[in-house]
Amino acid sequence: MTLKSLDDLRRLREEVQKEIETRQGAEVQIIVGMGTCGIAAGAREVMTAILEELARRNIKATVLQTGCIGMCEKEPLVDVVRPGEKRITYGHVTPRDVPRIIGEHVVNGRIVEDLVVGRAN
């Protein structure tokens, strides 16, 4: 890395380190389908949109990936699991849906009904 990037990375480490120390409780999980079917349907752009929205709004959540779960025609799939609540699966997700899913569901617990394609315990 160039010296400037390294400097920036170290500053970022301090910032994130402080946030981690003050964090409490279980985090919301966001799971993105990243099998061939998901990737071909645009899951990578959904993933980067999620990362940017979480970073921009300073929201702590755990982002995970899964492979093909057999709902290929509904990809890109994004699951949101709030601690102690049902697992909600959103389908045909685009980067434009990401601010809603995060703002409504991840932060406030309000399910974005028009995008739901599955629910499980």
Binding site: L9, R13, V16, I20, L51, V63
Partner: peptide, 15 residues
């Protein structure tokens, strides 16, 4: 460089 900060933190990945 990150020490205990995970590389998959959204801010780190965006950077």
């Amino acid at each position: 460089e990150l020490g205990g900060v995970p590389i998959n933190d959204p801010k780190v990945l965006t950077f």
